[in-house]
Amino acid sequence: MRNKLKVAYNLELGEAIRLYKLNEFTGSFHHLERAHILGQRYIIPHTKSHWWMLKVGIRKHNIKEVFGQVTRMIASVLFSKIWVPLGNTGGANVNPMKPMPIPEDLKKILSESE
């Protein structure tokens, strides 16, 4: 992972964790989705974003999210280097195979990191 991408990913993940610790799960999940978009081509960052989404799902008692994140964590280990649906936000509320539009600010970071 190139430095600018790594910095952006770590900023998103850091903000998600900060909000998680404040029990602000909606905001936390938003930043986890952004971290997911940035890190989904790399096994460890991809899996880490799903791990934290799982933790949010547990804290919110959201069975759909918990189950969805367990399956996505497994898929992230197996498929991150092979194929990922670009822009997919990673939550259980979206089809895990569906590419999605990438926010412009993240698109710029991703394009500079290729």
Rank of each mutant, 00 (worst) to 15 (best):
R2S: 08
R2Y: 07
N3K: 14
K4T: 14
K4M: 13
K4D: 14
K4Y: 13
K4W: 11
L5Y: 11
L5N: 11
Y9V: 03
Y9K: 03
N10L: 04
L13F: 02
E15G: 03
A16P: 03
A16T: 04
R18C: 10
R18P: 12
L19R: 03
Y20A: 04
Y20S: 04
L22A: 11
E24Q: 13
S28K: 04
S28T: 01
S28I: 03
F29I: 02
H31T: 02
H31D: 01
H31N: 02
L32P: 06
E33P: 10
R34S: 05
R34H: 04
A35Y: 02
A35H: 04
H36F: 00
I37N: 07
G39F: 09
R41P: 15
Y42D: 10
Y42C: 06
I43R: 13
K48E: 12
K48N: 13
K48C: 14
S49L: 01
H50G: 05
H50K: 00
W51E: 05
M53T: 06
M53Y: 05
G57R: 04
R59Q: 14
K60P: 15
H61M: 15
N62S: 10
N62Q: 06
I63P: 10
K64E: 14
V66P: 12
F67Y: 07
F67V: 11
G68L: 07
G68W: 00
G68Y: 05
G68R: 00
V70T: 03
T71C: 12
A75D: 04
V77T: 12
V77M: 12
V77F: 15
L78K: 02
L78Q: 04
F79G: 09
F79V: 09
S80Q: 08
I82L: 07
I82D: 09
W83M: 05
P85M: 05
P85V: 04
L86H: 10
L86G: 11
L86S: 11
G87M: 07
N88A: 03
T89H: 09
T89I: 10
T89E: 12
T89P: 11
A92W: 07
A92G: 12
N93P: 13
N93Q: 11
N93C: 10
N93G: 12
V94Q: 08
V94M: 06
N95K: 06
M97N: 08
K98V: 05
K98N: 08
M100S: 07
M100L: 06
M100K: 03
I102G: 09
P103K: 01
P103A: 00
E104K: 07
E104F: 08
D105C: 10
D105P: 13
I109E: 09
I109P: 12
I109C: 09
S111D: 15
S111V: 13
S111P: 15
E112A: 08
E112W: 06
S113F: 03
E114Y: 13
E114T: 13
